Simulated scan of single mutants.
Amino acid sequence: MLIPQTRNIGLPMMNLMRFKGLPILQQLHIEEKLLRTTSENWCIINDGTSDPAIVMGVSGKPAELLEIGSVLRDQVPVIRRFTGGGTVIVDHGTIFVTFICNKEAVLDLKPFPRQIMSWSSLLYSKVFQGIGDFHLRENDYVFGNHKFGGNAQSITKSRWIHHTSFLWDFEVRNMTYLKLPKRAPEYRLARGHLDFICRMKDYMPRSTFINKTVEATGTQFSLRSIMSEEIESCSETEFYPSTRLLTDKELEAAAVAGQ
Protein backbone atom coordinates (compact mmCIF):
# COMPACT_ATOMS: atom_id res chain seq x y z
CA MET A 1 0.00 0.00 0.00
CA LEU A 2 1.40 3.41 -0.95
CA ILE A 3 1.06 6.07 1.72
CA PRO A 4 0.89 9.64 0.39
CA GLN A 5 3.17 12.05 2.21
CA THR A 6 3.57 15.21 0.18
CA ARG A 7 1.78 15.95 -3.07
CA ASN A 8 3.30 18.86 -4.94
CA ILE A 9 1.65 19.12 -8.33
CA GLY A 10 4.17 19.57 -11.11
CA LEU A 11 7.07 18.05 -9.21
CA PRO A 12 8.49 14.63 -10.15
CA MET A 13 7.39 11.71 -7.99
CA MET A 14 9.87 10.18 -5.54
CA ASN A 15 9.39 7.11 -3.38
CA LEU A 16 10.57 7.58 0.22
CA MET A 17 11.80 4.60 2.22
CA ARG A 18 12.84 4.95 5.86
CA PHE A 19 14.68 2.34 7.89
CA LYS A 20 16.15 2.18 11.37
CA GLY A 21 19.18 -0.01 11.97
CA LEU A 22 19.07 -1.81 8.61
CA PRO A 23 22.38 -3.66 8.06
CA ILE A 24 24.46 -1.63 5.61
CA LEU A 25 25.09 -4.61 3.32
CA GLN A 26 21.33 -5.14 2.96
CA GLN A 27 20.82 -1.42 2.34
CA LEU A 28 23.42 -1.39 -0.42
CA HIS A 29 21.83 -4.44 -2.05
CA ILE A 30 18.46 -2.65 -2.04
CA GLU A 31 19.98 0.50 -3.52
CA GLU A 32 21.77 -1.35 -6.28
CA LYS A 33 18.62 -3.26 -7.19
CA LEU A 34 16.50 -0.11 -7.30
CA LEU A 35 19.09 1.71 -9.39
CA ARG A 36 19.43 -1.05 -11.97
CA THR A 37 15.99 -2.63 -12.18
CA THR A 38 13.45 0.17 -11.64
CA SER A 39 12.64 3.41 -13.43
CA GLU A 40 11.36 5.34 -10.42
CA ASN A 41 13.02 7.97 -8.23
CA TRP A 42 13.92 6.98 -4.69
CA CYS A 43 15.06 8.52 -1.42
CA ILE A 44 16.30 6.04 1.17
CA ILE A 45 17.02 7.07 4.76
CA ASN A 46 18.56 4.54 7.14
CA ASP A 47 18.96 5.72 10.73
CA GLY A 48 22.06 3.76 11.79
CA THR A 49 23.23 0.27 10.95
CA SER A 50 23.15 -2.70 13.28
CA ASP A 51 26.85 -3.57 13.60
CA PRO A 52 30.12 -1.79 12.75
CA ALA A 53 31.34 -2.42 9.19
CA ILE A 54 33.91 -0.95 6.84
CA VAL A 55 32.58 0.09 3.44
CA MET A 56 34.99 0.62 0.55
CA GLY A 57 34.47 2.10 -2.90
CA VAL A 58 34.37 -0.19 -5.91
CA SER A 59 38.05 0.41 -6.73
CA GLY A 60 39.39 0.68 -3.17
CA LYS A 61 42.53 -1.28 -2.29
CA PRO A 62 42.42 -2.80 1.22
CA ALA A 63 46.18 -2.71 1.77
CA GLU A 64 46.25 1.05 1.12
CA LEU A 65 43.13 1.89 3.11
CA LEU A 66 42.88 -0.52 6.03
CA GLU A 67 44.89 -1.70 9.00
CA ILE A 68 44.21 -5.23 7.84
CA GLY A 69 45.77 -6.95 10.84
CA SER A 70 43.44 -5.16 13.25
CA VAL A 71 40.44 -5.67 10.97
CA LEU A 72 41.05 -9.42 10.81
CA ARG A 73 41.81 -9.71 14.52
CA ASP A 74 38.56 -7.99 15.49
CA GLN A 75 36.53 -9.56 12.67
CA VAL A 76 35.23 -6.27 11.33
CA PRO A 77 33.25 -6.92 8.12
CA VAL A 78 34.64 -5.24 5.00
CA ILE A 79 32.20 -4.48 2.19
CA ARG A 80 33.07 -3.48 -1.35
CA ARG A 81 30.14 -1.41 -2.58
CA PHE A 82 29.02 -0.85 -6.17
CA THR A 83 29.72 2.90 -6.20
CA GLY A 84 32.92 4.92 -6.22
CA GLY A 85 34.13 7.16 -3.42
CA GLY A 86 36.22 6.57 -0.34
CA THR A 87 36.27 4.28 2.65
CA VAL A 88 34.23 4.71 5.80
CA ILE A 89 33.52 2.74 8.94
CA VAL A 90 29.84 2.85 9.83
CA ASP A 91 27.79 1.83 12.86
CA HIS A 92 24.73 2.84 14.88
CA GLY A 93 25.97 6.44 14.89
CA THR A 94 25.91 6.77 11.10
CA ILE A 95 22.88 8.11 9.24
CA PHE A 96 22.60 7.16 5.57
CA VAL A 97 20.74 9.17 2.93
CA THR A 98 20.51 8.02 -0.69
CA PHE A 99 18.99 9.55 -3.80
CA ILE A 100 18.36 7.40 -6.86
CA CYS A 101 17.05 9.37 -9.81
CA ASN A 102 16.31 9.25 -13.50
CA LYS A 103 18.49 11.62 -15.47
CA GLU A 104 15.57 13.91 -16.27
CA ALA A 105 14.23 13.99 -12.69
CA VAL A 106 16.00 17.21 -11.69
CA LEU A 107 15.46 20.09 -14.10
CA ASP A 108 18.66 21.28 -15.83
CA LEU A 109 20.83 18.84 -13.86
CA LYS A 110 23.38 17.19 -16.11
CA PRO A 111 24.31 13.67 -14.91
CA PHE A 112 27.95 14.31 -14.06
CA PRO A 113 29.56 13.88 -10.62
CA ARG A 114 30.25 17.55 -9.87
CA GLN A 115 26.80 18.70 -10.96
CA ILE A 116 25.13 16.03 -8.81
CA MET A 117 27.33 17.00 -5.85
CA SER A 118 26.43 20.66 -6.34
CA TRP A 119 22.72 19.85 -6.47
CA SER A 120 22.94 17.78 -3.29
CA SER A 121 24.83 20.52 -1.45
CA LEU A 122 22.08 23.01 -2.27
CA LEU A 123 19.48 20.59 -0.92
CA TYR A 124 21.43 20.08 2.31
CA SER A 125 21.96 23.83 2.62
CA LYS A 126 18.25 23.93 3.42
CA VAL A 127 18.70 21.22 6.05
CA PHE A 128 21.60 23.00 7.75
CA GLN A 129 20.41 26.57 7.29
CA GLY A 130 21.60 28.58 10.29
CA ILE A 131 23.48 25.59 11.73
CA GLY A 132 27.28 25.60 11.77
CA ASP A 133 29.34 26.72 8.80
CA PHE A 134 27.98 24.15 6.37
CA HIS A 135 29.29 23.85 2.85
CA LEU A 136 30.49 21.41 0.22
CA ARG A 137 34.27 21.18 0.28
CA GLU A 138 35.72 19.19 -2.59
CA ASN A 139 33.50 16.06 -2.34
CA ASP A 140 32.70 16.28 1.36
CA TYR A 141 30.08 17.94 3.51
CA VAL A 142 31.78 19.97 6.23
CA PHE A 143 31.19 22.32 9.10
CA GLY A 144 34.06 24.76 8.73
CA ASN A 145 36.99 22.53 7.80
CA HIS A 146 35.76 19.41 9.58
CA LYS A 147 34.10 16.63 7.61
CA PHE A 148 30.88 15.01 8.75
CA GLY A 149 29.50 13.61 5.49
CA GLY A 150 31.15 11.42 2.86
CA ASN A 151 29.62 10.88 -0.56
CA ALA A 152 29.66 8.23 -3.26
CA GLN A 153 28.02 8.04 -6.66
CA SER A 154 27.35 5.87 -9.65
CA ILE A 155 25.97 7.02 -12.99
CA THR A 156 24.39 4.66 -15.50
CA LYS A 157 23.02 5.27 -18.98
CA SER A 158 19.70 6.64 -17.76
CA ARG A 159 19.98 6.95 -13.97
CA TRP A 160 22.25 8.03 -11.13
CA ILE A 161 22.69 7.39 -7.42
CA HIS A 162 24.15 9.70 -4.82
CA HIS A 163 24.51 8.37 -1.30
CA THR A 164 25.96 9.87 1.85
CA SER A 165 27.18 8.54 5.17
CA PHE A 166 26.59 11.20 7.84
CA LEU A 167 28.63 10.96 11.04
CA TRP A 168 26.05 11.89 13.61
CA ASP A 169 28.35 10.15 16.09
CA PHE A 170 31.31 7.77 15.93
CA GLU A 171 33.44 5.53 18.11
CA VAL A 172 37.01 6.82 18.37
CA ARG A 173 38.34 3.27 18.51
CA ASN A 174 36.79 2.41 15.15
CA MET A 175 38.85 5.04 13.38
CA THR A 176 42.02 3.07 14.12
CA TYR A 177 40.98 0.50 11.50
CA LEU A 178 41.45 3.06 8.73
CA LYS A 179 44.76 4.23 7.30
CA LEU A 180 45.31 7.76 6.09
CA PRO A 181 44.41 7.50 2.38
CA LYS A 182 47.09 8.31 -0.17
CA ARG A 183 44.55 10.33 -2.14
CA ALA A 184 42.97 12.82 0.23
CA PRO A 185 41.25 16.17 -0.25
CA GLU A 186 43.60 19.12 -0.13
CA TYR A 187 41.79 20.74 2.77
CA ARG A 188 42.55 17.71 4.94
CA LEU A 189 46.16 18.95 5.25
CA ALA A 190 47.38 15.49 6.33
CA ARG A 191 45.26 15.65 9.49
CA GLY A 192 44.56 12.40 11.29
CA HIS A 193 41.01 11.07 11.36
CA LEU A 194 40.07 12.60 14.71
CA ASP A 195 41.36 16.05 13.74
CA PHE A 196 39.63 15.87 10.36
CA ILE A 197 36.08 14.78 11.21
CA CYS A 198 33.39 16.03 13.56
CA ARG A 199 30.15 14.79 15.06
CA MET A 200 26.81 16.07 13.80
CA LYS A 201 25.31 15.55 17.25
CA ASP A 202 27.24 18.62 18.39
CA TYR A 203 25.18 20.69 15.93
CA MET A 204 21.65 19.29 15.78
CA PRO A 205 19.42 16.48 17.11
CA ARG A 206 19.30 13.27 15.12
CA SER A 207 15.56 13.35 14.49
CA THR A 208 15.74 17.00 13.43
CA PHE A 209 18.28 16.19 10.73
CA ILE A 210 16.16 13.35 9.35
CA ASN A 211 12.94 15.38 9.40
CA LYS A 212 14.59 18.39 7.76
CA THR A 213 16.07 16.14 5.06
CA VAL A 214 12.61 14.82 4.22
CA GLU A 215 11.24 18.38 4.21
CA ALA A 216 14.02 19.64 1.91
CA THR A 217 13.51 16.72 -0.47
CA GLY A 218 9.80 17.50 -0.52
CA THR A 219 10.53 20.95 -1.97
CA GLN A 220 11.91 19.30 -5.13
CA PHE A 221 9.88 16.10 -5.37
CA SER A 222 6.37 14.90 -4.65
CA LEU A 223 7.04 12.30 -1.97
CA ARG A 224 5.17 9.12 -1.23
CA SER A 225 6.18 6.76 1.55
CA ILE A 226 6.60 3.13 0.64
CA MET A 227 6.93 0.16 2.97
CA SER A 228 10.04 -2.01 2.91
CA GLU A 229 8.07 -5.16 2.11
CA GLU A 230 6.99 -3.56 -1.17
CA ILE A 231 10.53 -3.63 -2.56
CA GLU A 232 10.10 -7.09 -4.03
CA SER A 233 7.10 -5.95 -6.05
CA CYS A 234 8.93 -2.93 -7.47
CA SER A 235 10.80 -5.05 -9.99
CA GLU A 236 10.36 -8.55 -11.31
CA THR A 237 13.83 -8.55 -12.86
CA GLU A 238 16.16 -11.17 -11.44
CA PHE A 239 19.05 -9.34 -9.90
CA TYR A 240 22.45 -10.28 -8.47
CA PRO A 241 24.15 -7.42 -6.59
CA SER A 242 27.84 -6.69 -7.09
CA THR A 243 28.18 -5.25 -3.58
CA ARG A 244 29.66 -7.94 -1.37
CA LEU A 245 31.64 -8.85 1.72
CA LEU A 246 35.35 -9.41 1.25
CA THR A 247 36.55 -12.72 2.67
CA ASP A 248 39.33 -13.14 5.23
CA LYS A 249 41.39 -14.84 2.53
CA GLU A 250 41.02 -11.85 0.23
CA LEU A 251 42.08 -9.48 3.01
CA GLU A 252 45.03 -11.68 3.96
CA ALA A 253 46.14 -11.84 0.33
CA ALA A 254 45.82 -8.06 0.05
CA ALA A 255 47.96 -7.60 3.14
CA VAL A 256 50.69 -9.84 1.74
CA ALA A 257 50.60 -8.13 -1.63
CA GLY A 258 50.85 -4.75 0.03
CA GLN A 259 54.02 -5.58 1.97
Results as ranks from 00 to 15, higher is better:
residue 72 L to E: 02
residue 72 L to N: 05
residue 74 D to N: 13
residue 75 Q to C: 09
residue 79 I to E: 04
residue 80 R to L: 02
residue 80 R to C: 06
residue 85 G to R: 07
residue 87 T to L: 10
residue 88 V to A: 06
residue 90 V to L: 08
residue 97 V to M: 12
residue 98 T to G: 14
residue 98 T to D: 15
residue 98 T to I: 14
residue 101 C to E: 05
residue 103 K to Q: 09
residue 104 E to M: 07
residue 105 A to H: 05
residue 106 V to D: 04
residue 107 L to M: 12
residue 109 L to I: 10
residue 109 L to P: 08
residue 109 L to R: 11
residue 111 P to D: 02
residue 111 P to W: 00
residue 112 F to Q: 14
residue 117 M to R: 04
residue 117 M to S: 11
residue 119 W to C: 15
residue 121 S to N: 06
residue 123 L to H: 06
residue 125 S to L: 13
residue 125 S to M: 15
residue 129 Q to W: 07
residue 131 I to N: 12
residue 132 G to N: 03
residue 134 F to G: 06
residue 137 R to A: 02
residue 141 Y to E: 03
residue 143 F to C: 04
residue 145 N to L: 04
residue 148 F to R: 01
residue 148 F to K: 02
residue 151 N to H: 00
residue 153 Q to N: 01
residue 162 H to W: 00
residue 164 T to H: 01
residue 165 S to M: 13
residue 166 F to C: 15
residue 167 L to I: 04
residue 169 D to E: 12
residue 170 F to Q: 04
residue 170 F to A: 03
residue 173 R to Y: 13
residue 174 N to R: 08
residue 175 M to T: 05
residue 176 T to P: 00
residue 177 Y to L: 12
residue 177 Y to W: 09
residue 179 K to I: 06
residue 180 L to F: 05
residue 184 A to C: 05
residue 185 P to S: 14
residue 186 E to Y: 05
residue 186 E to I: 11
residue 188 R to V: 00
residue 189 L to D: 04
residue 190 A to L: 09
residue 191 R to M: 02
residue 192 G to M: 09
residue 197 I to F: 07
residue 198 C to L: 03
residue 200 M to D: 03
residue 201 K to A: 14
residue 202 D to I: 03
residue 202 D to G: 06
residue 204 M to I: 11
residue 205 P to Y: 12
residue 206 R to E: 00
